[in-house]
């Protein structure tokens, strides 16, 4: 198993999968597809942690993999689905820029990350590509948040960002101590629930979940 994982550089493969699922956000038009992409992304992340656990022979990483799967892969997607159903709106996202341009800019971001991190910190672990991919995922998510104006897309962007962050964390540290992992996951979960509550509130108060309408506070 270990030799097989190393021979085919499975970790790199999974990380690229994570990047690709983030890139697909540029093309999707509905919130439901975002939730699906997020679910796949989280499952890939859990697989990655499990693969690292096999490679490193670290039992506590199996726990981390299971926790990731349970919260990010199951609980959060279920909750998001519930919110989407509850909102009962047409879940079409109207990006501020066209999908093609959005895709082009995202790939530009990936290129910039690769170019600028080539000489930065060199990760001594098993893969040199994971940190770049992680930061690319974070930046793409930020980019998605900036260019889409739906409240739920903001939440999705944040979640993708956090997945990218976890990826960075694993590539840099091979997993934090389990208790820390647990605390961070708990915070993420609570954060999503609170954000969900606010999304529903925004919809109720302003009769829209379009953030374009939230422009009273400025200056």
């Amino acid at each position: 198993m270990k030799a097989w994982l190393e021979a085919y550089s499975i970790v790199d493969f999974i990380s690229v999968g994570l990047l690709l699922t983030a890139v697909t956000l540029n093309a999707f038009k509905s919130i439901e597809s975002y939730v699906k992409a997020y679910t796949i992304n989280s499952w890939l992340l859990a697989c990655l942690v499990a693969a690292v656990a096999v490679l490193m022979d670290e039992p506590h990483l199996y726990v981390a993999a299971l926790l990731t799967l349970a919260t990010k892969g199951v609980l959060i997607p279920l909750f998001l689905r519930k919110i989407v159903r509850q909102m009962r709106i047409t879940h079409i996202i109207h990006p501020a820029i066209s999908n093609a341009l959005s895709l082009a800019l995202s790939s530009l971001l990936v290129a910039v990350v690769y170019a600028s991190l080539k000489t930065g910190i060199t990760v001594t672990g098993f893969s040199r590509n994971v940190l770049q991919i992680a930061i690319a995922v974070i930046l793409i998510s930020l980019f998605i948040m900036i260019t889409r104006k739906k409240a739920l897309v903001m939440v999705m962007g944040l979640l993708f960002m956090e997945n990218g962050l976890f990826l960075a964390g694993f590539s840099l540290t091979f997993g934090m101590p389990t208790i820390i992992e647990l605390g961070v996951l708990f915070d993420v979960l609570m954060g999503v629930i609170i954000l969900g509550i606010f999304v529903v509130q925004i919809r109720r108060t302003f009769a829209t979940a379009d953030l374009d309408k939230l422009t009273v506070l400025k200056g």
Binding site: M145, A151, M154, L158, G191, F198, T205, F206, L214, V216
Partner: peptide
């Protein structure tokens, strides 16, 4: 307006 403020804050 508090909803708007809290939303901006948490995001």
């Amino acid at each position: 307006l508090a909803v708007e403020a809290a939303w901006k804050y948490i995001v």
